[in-house]
Computed example of a mutant assay.
Amino acid sequence: MRTSVLVQNLKCGGCANTITTKISEIKHISDIRVDIDESKVSFNYINDFDALAVKDKLKALGYPSIDDDNNLVSKAKSFVSCATGKISK
């Protein structure tokens, strides 16, 4: 199955690189696409548990879904994730 998650704090290629790298570590997740302009992360998954794991991982990285609270901690985490993604490119 395929789904998309609209996220907050997605700003650049560094963010996209971190998201792609970390989400690809989740079992049964494939074909990850990050659309910076639309703040959207799309991926294939096998069951709902895997899709929820992606949403949780995005939140932990500082990219909560549009349904979640975007507090100062999330913004700080996204800043670090973005910088990490830029360095590892």
Score class of each variant (00 low, 15 high):
R2T: 08
R2E: 15
R2S: 06
T3Y: 05
V5G: 00
V5L: 01
L6D: 09
Q8V: 01
Q8K: 15
N9C: 10
N9K: 08
L10A: 04
C12M: 01
C12E: 05
G13R: 08
G14W: 02
G14V: 02
C15H: 05
C15V: 08
C15Q: 08
A16D: 05
N17K: 14
N17E: 03
N17S: 14
N17V: 03
I19L: 09
I19C: 09
I19V: 15
T20I: 12
T20E: 13
T21D: 12
T21P: 00
K22S: 02
K22N: 11
K22T: 06
I23L: 07
I23E: 00
S24T: 09
S24H: 01
E25K: 13
E25I: 00
E25P: 00
I26P: 01
K27F: 04
K27D: 13
K27T: 10
K27G: 00
K27M: 09
K27N: 13
K27Q: 13
H28A: 01
I29L: 03
S30A: 15
D31C: 03
D31E: 15
D31R: 12
D31I: 02
I32G: 01
R33P: 00
V34Y: 02
V34M: 11
D35E: 14
D35S: 12
E38M: 07
E38C: 01
S39L: 01
S39G: 11
K40F: 03
V41K: 00
V41N: 01
S42M: 12
S42K: 05
F43Q: 00
F43S: 01
N44Q: 11
N44V: 00
N44H: 05
N47G: 07
N47I: 09
D48H: 09
D48N: 15
D48V: 11
D48M: 13
F49R: 10
F49D: 14
A51M: 06
A51E: 02
L52V: 07
V54Y: 07
K55Y: 00
K57M: 12
K57N: 08
L58I: 04
A60D: 15
L61C: 11
L61V: 05
L61D: 06
G62R: 07
G62T: 06
Y63F: 15
Y63D: 04
S65N: 09
S65K: 08
S65C: 11
D67T: 13
D67S: 14
D67A: 12
D67M: 06
D68E: 15
D68R: 13
N70W: 06
N71S: 06
N71E: 04
N71G: 14
L72C: 03
V73Q: 12
V73T: 15
S74E: 11
K75C: 09
K77W: 12
K77D: 09
K77Q: 11
S78E: 04
S78G: 04
S78R: 03
F79W: 11
V80F: 13
S81F: 04
S81I: 01
T84H: 08
G85M: 07
K86Y: 12
K86E: 10
I87G: 02
I87S: 09
I87W: 10
S88M: 11
S88E: 08
K89T: 09
K89S: 07
